[in-house]
């Protein structure tokens, strides 16, 4: 469990680092996606139980996994996908307008 939590923390920090340090628009978008992935992992990790099964209300299934975080994870994935779509659209448009994906270059061109 601890190993998973460390991985989650590393991914989250890596995402923030990428967003803050990279100049390329596509790489910034990747950083955001890495951050999102770490949060979804965190949600799944919260509800994980060793040997747990789907929450079926029956006597045979006693050790069940909490289904709510998984539903939340699905919703978070959908939101992340739509945000990524908008971001990539903007990246394409920025490339068409400025001819570059470098964010500092884009600022300089605008003056």
């Amino acid at each position: 469990m601890l190993a998973v939590q460390i991985v989650i923390a590393i991914l989250f920090i890596l995402g923030i680092y990428t967003i803050l340090n990279r100049k390329n628009v596509i790489k910034i978008i990747m950083g955001i996606n890495i951050m999102e992935a770490s949060l979804i992992l965190f949600l799944i990790q919260l509800s994980y139980k060793d040997g747990g099964t789907a929450p079926i209300l029956d006597k045979e299934y006693e050790l069940i996994v909490d289904p709510l975080p998984q539903a939340l994870a699905l919703t978070a994935i959908v939101i992340g996908a739509s945000t990524t779509a908008v971001m990539l659209f903007l990246a394409i448009k920025l490339y068409k307008e400025y001819g570059t994906l470098d964010i500092s270059e884009i600022r300089r061109l605008r003056g």
Partner: peptide, 17 residues
Amino acid sequence: NHKAYEASFKYIIIGTV
């Protein structure tokens, strides 16, 4: 226009984080 795309990109990065 280019200003709108740039502003929107800035907004989306900060807003999403």
